[in-house]
Design a protein around this nucleic acid. Structure first.
Lengths: 214, 214
DNA sequence: GTTTAATTTAAACGAGTGTTTTAATCAAAC
DNA sequence: GTTTGATTAAAACACTCGTTTAAATTAAAC
């Protein structure tokens, strides 16, 4: 099999890079196959369709990240954890994606952002049905950390948080350029992650107005 | 001029709705003109190109919202304002967009989100150059409210906030359905806005880790 | 009422898309 | 060495896209 390095993974490697920086619909199969130096038809041969290629690209990261993230949460000490600690526990699993592939962390978060914003709902469905167990585990950890916040508010705030992360990562490159130009602050992906944690931790754990005068 | 109601605004009305719910690149001129019941070529006749149509759609909202929002901030009492107050001052200008057009608030926020995420940078440039004055005014109001947060962190956190709002509004319908089914909580757009304010206010004003040990 | 300009229309253009087809090529099994 | 099945290759297919053209129509000016 396989002439040089596997055609199938050459496609995945080229696709994830282009998807992350240009979005899914803005990236043509011809651009992917030319970057990967493979034939155009090989995408449909190996993956069936562009939509399934997109899922394969995301799954390759989620299959690594989701169990790793759940383990990190589960291994936390059971008492006295703050929201900063919970979100902070996700940093290591995220950064370890860099060992998987170059710029793995950035690519993964950008892909996640693109996935949630583009592709009206069908990727959201893919993620929640394939990784729902891991997500539930995370939500329970958050809920037990902020018992003063009603369940329904936790629901809303975690979606606020998803929006924060996803939007930031999708435009991380542009924002980093501005930060470098206007504030002479040169951030890598880890610096941005560490900046966002206090923000989302404070938002999730702030007392809910309705809960106070219950 | 104008056979029935102005063709130019018929295009704008149809375009903003479709752009908001499907994104810019996913919305074809043929879909817009068929919904608007005008001829395909009239878009290029009246607006020159699709790109300029997108800008016109956004400008129609921004020209109303930006001055209105600035006035709301300027009219605030000068002392003792919290971050909740500042963001709260934007609620009225946002909701008044509903008088402009049906679902104006939601459409505007969704368009803003699409604009920042899609169209790599050229719409971000359009907004900052045309409405930079209003944005600066708002940033200064925020900065003077949280003097303990460094400027660069305010920059980042306001973009986090943009992501929170924009992402939430883009999926507000789906989230409201889930909230109604899982928690029996039936929200309209204003209720969601009032839920998000404590979240983003807490995130923006939380002490920055670096600033503490400066 | 004729002229003039603005607008609308239908049709085509040229480029780009994902996908399919058919033949060529390759590696291994017998 | 031949056969077999998997992979690669080049080409075409059937669209869709934004844009342009040129004629038809409409509205306003004189």
């Amino acid at each position: 099999m396989a002439s040089r390095s596997d055609t199938k993974t050459r496609i995945l490697d080229a696709a994830e890079k282009l998807f992350a920086e240009r979005g899914f619909s803005e990236t043509s199969l011809r651009l992917i196959t030319s970057k990967a130096e493979v034939n155009l038809a090989s995408v449909n041969y190996h993956y069936g369709s562009k939509k399934e290629l997109i899922r394969a690209v995301l799954a390759r990261y989620l299959d690594v990240f989701m169990p790793s993230a759940q383990r990190a949460i589960a291994d936390m000490p059971k008492n006295g954890q703050t929201m900063d600690d919970i979100f902070g526990a996700l940093v290591q699993p995220l950064l370890e994606l860099n060992k998987l592939r170059a710029d793995g962390t950035t690519v993964f978060l950008q892909l996640l952002g693109r996935g949630y914003i583009e592709s009206q709902g069908h990727l959201r469905w893919f993620i929640t049905t394939h990784y729902g167990g891991h997500l539930d585990f995370f939500v329970k950890a958050v809920a037990s950390c902020v018992p003063h916040v009603p369940q329904v508010d936790i629901f809303w705030r975690l979606h606020f948080t998803l929006g924060t992360v996803v939007f930031t990562m999708a435009s991380a490159d542009a924002l980093n350029e501005i930060a470098a130009a206007d504030f002479d602050e040169h951030n890598d992906i880890e610096a941005v992650i560490r900046k966002v944690i206090p923000y989302i931790a404070a938002g999730v754990s702030v007392p809910a107005p309705n809960a106070i005068l219950e």
